[in-house]
Amino acid sequence: MEYIVQQVLNALSFGAEYALLALGLAIVFSIMGLVNFAHGEIIAVGGYTMVAFASLAIGNPMIVMAGAVLAAMLASLTLERVAFRPVRKADPTTGLLTAFGVSIVLQNLFLLFVSPRPIAVTSLYFLDWSIEIAGIRLASLQVFETLTTIIVIIALMLFLRRTVLGLAVRAASLDFEMVRLTGIRANRVFAIAFLISGLLAGLACIFIMARRGSVDPHLGFEPVLKAFVACVVGGFGSLPGAVLGGFLLGAVEVAMLVMLPQSLGGMTDAFVFMIVAMILIWRPDGILSPAVEKGDKL
């Protein structure tokens, strides 16, 4: 029983992390049609902020976590203002290339001005201990991660449904020009999307750092790749799709880890992506992809 609960929790916490990251990608994509591959570097900014706090001898974990999240939000806003706003009206390919460019520039800045080697961050170890619930021993980090993601999704849902700016973000995913015609400033809608994206990256950063215990310039690459896959599976542009894709990917990963024989242990990702491919054969636009007029192409 304990084994099953542990694996379910594993799947939930993996999925929660992917869902947080996928939501960050999806909220920007839904408005701009931009896959922000620099999202991983925003996570790294959060990680290096923790290093900076450590070097300033600030060890209070609450300050460290809040600082990392704020830094990620600020980095995301800055990227929107400096890199993405100038190409907002350009072809989607230009936006995609800009995102890759920003990602490479930031990685190289970390390499040149910080360090190419991993730097340990110990201030988050307190998040990870063993807790016992109903006689079953669980890892606290996984419980925190799952709960945080659930709270964030509820808060995001309330924001998107109950506030004018949230409604504008949802509406902009369908018809941005019409949102402007209601008098809402375009720059505010983009800024809020990037701010939320940064917040989600910052929160994910806390859990990634708590698990890894170190930061390097490529910290965000793999998580964002997984988040991208989660978005594709869920349906790019759909926020519920991003959450579903994240949790589904987490569940498939854990299922493969548990079910595959040890001799095939190194092939886990191959099996995961095979299942992803099968899902995409079934639903080529993703499970919850927004309805799109196909016209004569069908």
Partner: peptide, 24 residues
Amino acid sequence: VSPEGRRIFSNLTVLENLTLGAAL
């Protein structure tokens, strides 16, 4: 403006559309 083709926000409810209309 009530634009050509209506351009209502089909992913929002009727009430949410009206709320956005009064955004200012």
